[in-house]
Amino acid sequence: MTTPENSTGGVPVSADPVGADIDAPAQTPSSPRKGMFGITGSGDVSGFGGLVRRHPEVVGSPKPYGSFFDEVTDALEEAYPGFADAIEKVVVDRGELTLHVKAEKIAEIAQIMRDDEGLRFELCSSVSGVDYLNSDARRLHVVYHLTSMTYRRRVRVEVAVPVDGTVPTVTSVYPTADWQERETYDMFGVVFTGHPNLTRILMPDDWEGHPQRKDYPLGGVAVEYKGAEIPPPDQRRVYQ
């Protein structure tokens, strides 16, 4: 709607921001435990603000695991004497096997996974990290996906470390993990001991902070659009 005395040629003039509260605190991890709409201190009297979500716990699965998972765990147990020590949890979920392993043992386990006849996981598909903020002290998880070309199956090996924790590198077993571990270090701050060149890979070399951590802000700016100011994605109201 333009008024006849609009002399700016139909271009919206900047006005006071309308709409969202741009001073709202940055949204910490998605799906907050409390509350429904992701904002606090508003006049919301619906009662959804008091909603408390149970944090999903990852429980180990009972034996027998089914499909090829028993084969894999039995072969690993046979080949690796420290199996009972190193494996913390075995989870079978959605047709996938996840071995939760102690961080110090990952290099040995990777060696056995690759070399043992019954395991033969030749290809390390992916090494990445997940930040489980609000879980426990060991919040940074490094996840290794191993693929066996001989047996055509996949397995996931997961280790958990606290924020200043270190993980031995698997590059001596899987050289492909070189850049992938660098990325995990860059994004999460997990230090891999023994890595040939642990430097930042995606962010500039002098960047501070580890962006993919849950307490690192998304870092956007407010956007002005047609007279209103839209806050960045992590400060908007979100329907959870």
């Binding site: 690192y216 700016v221 960045p232």
Partner: peptide
Amino acid sequence: GGMFNNYAIVQ
């Protein structure tokens, strides 16, 4: 800055 309103892209 487009759809990438975040830490990594110059807006």
